[in-house]
Each structure stands twice: as structure tokens, then as C-alpha cells.
Design a protein around this nucleic acid. Sequence first.
RNA 1: GCCGAAGUGGUGGAAUGGUAGACACGAGGGACUUAAAAUCCCUUGCCCAUUGCGGGCGUGCGGGUUCAAGUCCCGCCUUCGGUACCA
Length: 944
Amino acid sequence: MEYNFREIERKWQEKWRESGIYKTEEDESRPKFYVLDMFPYPSGAGLHVGHPLGYIGSDIYARYKRQKGFNVLHPMGYDAFGLPAEQYAIQTGQHPAITTGKNVDRYREQLDKIGFSFDWERSFKTCDPDYYKWTQWTFIQLFNSYYDNKQSKALPIAELESFFAANGTYGLCAAETEPMDFTANDWNSFDERQRQETLMNYRLAYLADTWVNWCPELGTVLANDEVVNGLSVRGGFPVERKLMKQWNLRVSAYAERLLQGLDTVEWSDSLKEIQRNWIGRSEGAAVWFPLAKNGPADWKEIYMGSVEGVKSEVAFEIFTTRPDTIFGVTFMVLCPEHEMIASITTDEQKDEVESYVTWAKNRSERERQAEVKKVTGVFTGAFAVNPLTEERIPIWVSDYVLSDYGTGAIMAVPAHDSRDFAFARHFSLPIRQVVAPSQDEVSNPDTWSESMDSKTGVCVNSGFITGMTVKDAGKAVIEKIKALGIGYGTVNYRLRDAIFSRQRYWGEPFPIYYKDGMPYTVPENELPVLLPEVDRFLPTETGEPPLARAKDWTYNGFQMEYSTMPGFAGSSAYYLRYMDPKNDTALVSEKADKYWQQVDLYVGGAEHGTGHLIYARFWNKFLFDIGVSCKDEPFKKLINQGMIQGRSNFVYRVVGTNKFVSLNLKNDYETTPIHVDVNIVHNDILDIEAFRNWMPDFKDAEFVLENGQYVCGWEVEKMSKSKYNVQNPDDLVERYGADTLRMYEMFLGPIEMAKPWDTNGIEGVFRFLKKFWKLYFDQNGEFSVSDDEPTKQELKTLHKTIKKIEDDNERFSFNTAVSAFMICVNELQEAKCCKRAILEPLTVLMSAYAPHIAEELWSLLGHEDSVVTTGFPACDEHYLQDDEYVYPVSFNGKMRLKMSFPANFSPKDIEPKVLENPDVQKWLDGKTPKKIIIVPKKIVNIVF
RNA sequence: GCCGAAGUGGUGGAAUGGUAGACACGAGGGACUUAAAAUCCCUUGCCCAUUGCGGGCGUGCGGGUUCAAGUCCCGCCUUCGGUACCA
């Protein structure tokens, strides 16, 4: 019987569906294991071969874990809200829900063909109201929480209200948008509006005027991770900065926990490092620099008392990571957005400062980034006082200081910071060296070509810290400013709060309405707030988001929020929902959460390192704080499948003709390379007939062949339609079957490595499966398996394979596992082994990789049950032992000959036998060896 | 610039510090066949020798540690990913 993969795969996929064999339930009697793939955004283009790479890997692991006795949760769903469906809706008028539905059906169809063991009963889309109800619910909890820095956790906002009523802000230690200062009496006399505005400064989901990345083309704001090089990730449109009232999530409150948590998860070092950089923790000091309004004489009075006593109208708070260089400060710089600029600028400088600030604020992100090296700035005419040297220093404004990091104001130390250096040189400001490699290596900074940014060395020209190492001096300065009450040691993070509003239609509506201009939440029992219908998916004429078009978009007569939530809202807790997807009283029941705990293995692309994987961790930590999730970290182990790049093929057209010349002859002509559809090229040989039919232009093409064939060139590029290098898995499944595709995708290389997609080797895997199939059939094609006792050699082959597959599965080395199967089948074929005792366990091993063929053979072997419910075979090491072992014998490390000894020989027994060997004697040539190194079962090395 | 990962045949890639190139593709040769497909066998890192053997060189480059280095250490080069005025 032939290996008819089409029939076999159709048959078993149907059986699995009918029997619901992959349905999962909580089962206290078995240990659990949760394997999750990053769910896909169902785009119109369907799945390409890059998608299943991770899914196949996780499916193999899930099946392997089931065989090992685990109760495996392995769900799949869709990240269905998002821009492409909406852009399509704008162009065609078709509702995004319809487009999304169609795409989801197509994805499902494609996924089903590959034979995954997903529990589809747990599936959902993020745009399902039953699901986004809980996204909205979580938002309400965020709105009603603040972050307590002492306990390092989120607490109910009501507790903050009681705190204010009793203490005002005195002793408060909470994450905040900006510092506030009021007493209990103040609070108690506040009206409702003032209280709401105050609380907004602390809520974890808060509304605030925010400098945002505004993308006019998309008509929406974007988060930092959605903007690359000043262009939107989706569409590549320019992005500008704009001050807008936006919802934000106080992700920054969790910066330290997000950083610490990385030490507790099993992720790749590179991905952890990406997140650490994104969080960007830096230790340093905050220092108050007073304004020298009336000269140095009166500034000291300002400092009577504590830091709290310093009035921000007369002093600037700066952040520095180099307090040790404070004696080298020669000027200060404020960001153009700094609120004190207007009040300090002198009359003479007013016009110049105003025009600079206007210019700087209107510069687009892209312009700003393109001109990073260009130094711009303006002097305010005002001076500050360096609190340690009592010197007057000029205050400048420049856009190299960012408004949203630190305090938007810096002390400039041009000698030891490259940006300050460039600025000082450009505007001829003084540069003073305060750090040197050693006391006597001081030089004239005017002769320097760059600043000395090194954080090693000793302080010079630095008052009381002169002579100290940089490290000690930093500590000493912090002590000093603390004692003086003008500053303190502190930590700053690069991680910003996440902007949470999108002025788009196709997203979760906010459960928020406005009363007297203040936002209030819709009661939880009225969730979900359904996405309303609109006539068009565009902003209104007055520039309001599309939801403003909805009829009667109100709650009890109050206007609802017009923005919707961003894509990451729906993807931030979906892994929790899979634990209990049908629950309509909770995001996840306590019971389900206690059982499944967290994702044990998460598989997906590293491109989500600074987006989804930060947001989901934040979201989960919050849910942990409020008792919804029992684990602080959502994803215990993470595997990043490498990106699949495209492998493009080219034909070479002779310039000005319709003649195409084969790769190795092209140097004889003047040619232009043209992308050719990879689907009409096999092993780099062009299917000429198919090429002629591919495009009308090529109908009458002529060819210059080599050896009767047209050889195409190739290059690794991004997979894209325009490069004709997209391969969709359906074609391969149709041609070779799902089992071949599964094994081939694994065979390509290590799952974590980026690699070009290349079908050139798929024949080999297909041949292997045919060979595997043939082991079970005799020459006449009849199924024929013998019950004879296997030989020692056959048992060795089997158990070697069991051990190897187990090891490889555990370390996700699926490519070497496929090779191990090939070796095994080759050996069995050579031995003409068709014994049940060997083939049965092999079938079970194979079932994780090629489940359809394994099921078919399992049933032919006479089993009633399914192979996927059968346990992983045990390896008996006894069969792996050799009677005899071949030692490579080397001289001074160079291999010369091989000798075999009984496996149980000890080094002591081997040594004399080696020396007796005539070849060894020849090599020794009468000399006595200095040393003989014998590593059992490894090598004999003679040193002389 | 900074951070991270990786450089091995014509190609994808194997190698707990111990015979580098497993396994596969491709290529060349052969068997079967009227023929093709399918299948099977042999060769295949480079160079020299080739009647048989055999010998030399080889894991991006330069050093080092070791009896022994693709693997460990130091210094470079290249490629890919992340990030980028983050004070």
C-alpha cells in the first residue's frame, strides 16, 4: 500500500474533531502543563510558512508532554482588533467584523490542515464581547487603583481617598504623574471635581495631557513601541508630537518589578536584555539648582529646611547619573516644553527663546531624529546657582533635553558628557575637567576632540571630593546634598507610561462616560459596553474619532468616551482567559487559575519584546496584585522562534530584449535581475512553461539555458508579496502532506534561529516518511509486521532513538530529533527490521512530530485506542552498552590509529596493550612516552 | 554610539574540551525500466598522490590556555537583531 498522505490526514483530522480528543479539563490527579503560542492577527493574506514554525514546535512539545503524563492546556485564538481590518473597512465600507470573521475562518482552515492538537473549544477572538467584557473590566480595576511604592503593589483608590482625608499628601508614597502638595484640610474642603482631578494624578489608568506620537495619516496616537524611526510601524507614515488629553496606563509604576521579575523567568538572555534596556534603570541623584534671581547672596535662604521646603518657582530639579561631576557644571539646559521657561526668560532674550521653543515643539519626530547630531539651543538670559560651588551658571533651552525623561532639566558637564560637550563647543561655553585617569593627568579641555565620558578615574578640581574615585565621590556628593537638604539619591527609569487611547473604530470601547467633563466608569454589572455601529469608519468633520458618529453613544444621557483601546489591551490577559474561557462571572475563576497557574511554555517572536511582552507582564502583575492571578509572572519559559526570511528567486533578462539567461551564463550579457515567483521554481530550476504562463509579458520569452535547464539566482530577503517569495503552507500540505511540512519546518534548523525559508530540502523529509511507512509493509505492499524477538542491534537502534528524542524534546532541539528519526529508519531499513517490538514504540515517538501517519500505522498495528493517548516509551540504557569500544589513539593530540578494547577495560588495562601495538611502537620510534592520557570511552593520547 | 546573538563544505545545518562536517539537499556516477516517474547503490570539504595504500591543509582573522580547541580566555573583522540625544 502506498503512503497516501491526503487520505490519511483527512481521515485522522476528522476523527480527532469528532472524538474531541484534544479537549482539556482540569484534572487534579495529573500535573498540568500550559503550552501557548502567541496568537495571530488574522490578516487578509492568510498564514504563511513563518507562522506555523512556532506552532509546530509548541505542538510537538505539547504532544510530548501529554505522552509524559501531563495534563496539557494548548489553546489557540485570534488577536482580532486592529488597524488593517479597519483600513480595509475605510476603503471598502465593509464592516471590520465581517473582514475579521472571514480571515479567522481562513486561518482556522489553514491551521486545521497542519494537524495541531489545539483545544478549539477554548478558542475566542479578542473582539468577542464575551472576552472584551473582561478587558473593560480590567480597565475599570486599573482606573480604581493606585500604586503604593512602600508596599510595591496596587491598592484600591478608596484607600488613597481615606489617606488624603486623614493626612493630605504628607507621608504619601505613591506613583504619581506629578508631585502634589496639600493637607488633609485642603482635601476635605475640595469639591468633587477637585477631588477627581487629584485622584487622576494617581490612578493606574489615568487621563492626562500627554505629549503623544500623533500619526495624521492613521488619524490616531501611537505607543512608543508602535513608532520606529519617526514612522508608524503599521503603514510607515510620519508621526508628529502633539499635546493631547489621553488615557494612559501607569506602567512606569511597575518598572522595578518588571525588571526584578526577569530574574525569575526562563527567557533567552537576549530577550531579557532587550527588556532591561527598554526599562532602562539608572541610579543617580536628584538635585535642586536655585534660580539666581538676585545673585548668589540670597539663594541659601531658600534652602532652609528640607527638600520639601524648596519651592519649584525658584529652583529646578535635575536628575543626573553623575553626581561626582557636579563641580564640572558650567551651564544648565531645560527642555523646550519646560514650564518655567516663560517665567525666567529675560526681556532681551524673550523673542529668541519664544521662536526657538515654537520651532522645537513643531518639529516632527522624524526631523528631530534625523538631525540628532545638529546642535540647537537658546540662552534664556537667566542664571542658576550651582549649590555646591555657589557659582552662577547660565540657563539654556535645547531640544536635546527630553521632556519625558527625568525632570526635563539637566546640569551640563561638558567635560564628561558628549552631548553637553558638543553643545558647549557650539555655543562657546566653558568646559572644565573634574575627572581624570589620575591626579596628575589633568589636561586642557580646549585641546580635546571629545569629552571624557569614562566612569573610572579620580576627581580633580572638585572641592571636597578632589582625589576620590568617581565611585566614592558619587556617594559622597549624595550624602552632602542630602545633608544640605538640596537633593537625594534616586533611581530613574526610561520606561514610560503607555498611552492607551486610539482614535480608531476597531478596538475595545472604554467603559467610561463623562459627567461635568470628568470621566466615570460604567458599572461592572453593565459590561460589556458593546462597540456601537457607525455609518463610516472615519473621523468626523470636526476631527472627533469614529465613535462620535455612533447614534446615541451615551450612558444615561452622558457622553461616552470616543476613543477605543489599543491592540495590546486585548492581548494582555488572553492567556488567563484560556484557563476558563466560558466564565461569565469572572475573567478566570479562582479554581481554574489555581490549577493552571501560568503559561509554562510560551512560543512567539522576539519582535514583541518591547510591546506585548512588557504590557502583558504589567497587566498580569496588576491582576496578581488584585488577586485575580496567582502568579506574578505570566510566562515562565519563553522560546522565540526565529523569524523566517524569504528566499527570493531571480531570472536575468538581457537588457532591451525578452531573452532570459541562466545564472552561470549571465556574465556574458548585460542583464537586469527580475524577481520570479518562487512557486514556479524548484531547487532553483525554473519551470519554463509555468514562467511563460505567469505573466503576459513573458509569453514569448526566450531562454539561454545551461545543461538544458534554466538556473535561477537567489537571495535572502524579507518575505513579501512584491518579491514573489511568499510561500503558503497549504500548497506544501497539498503536495507533500502536513506530516512532511511539520517535520520539514523543524528540520530546517534550530527553532530559535532566524533563517531563510527554502523548500529545497523538503523532498528529503518526504522520502523519509515514505521510507518510514514502508517499514511496515512487505514487497507486495501488504501490511506485515512480525512478532519475532528483535536482535540486540535492533534494540540498540530503538533505545538510542528513544533517548535521543527525549533529550532533544526537552531542549527544544527539534531539528536534531528529526535527524535522529532518519538515522533510526535508515538503520531499520538496512536491517530489514519489521518487528512489532521495535516499530510500535517508534510509532509512538513519531506521533508528536508526524501525528497523522503515526495514527494510521498505530491503527494498522491493531490498536483500538489513539496513539496520542499512549505514553512515551521508556528507554532501557541496558541496550545501549557496547561490548567493545573503539579508541582513537593520538600522538601529541594528533589522531593516528584506532584500537578496540572490551568496554569494561579500565585505563590500567589499556595502557600496556596500547604500548605493545606495533603501529604505536613505530610512531614512538624507541622513545619513551612522557605521559599517556586515557579518557575512558573517549580517547587515548600519547604525549612524547 | 551602546547592548545582545551569530560566523563551520556548493546549500540547510551536526558535534557533554576528545576521530570536525552527523542528518539532509544539491551535484556526479551506476542499477532497475522500452521510456519516464518512483526506488536502490557508490562518490562528494580543499589540495597532492592514485595500481593499492597514503600525505598535507582546514570551523571569520590574530594571539593564548591545554596532552587535546569549532567549543575556553584576550584582541580584531564581518553579518544580523534590539535601542538610540534616556543626562
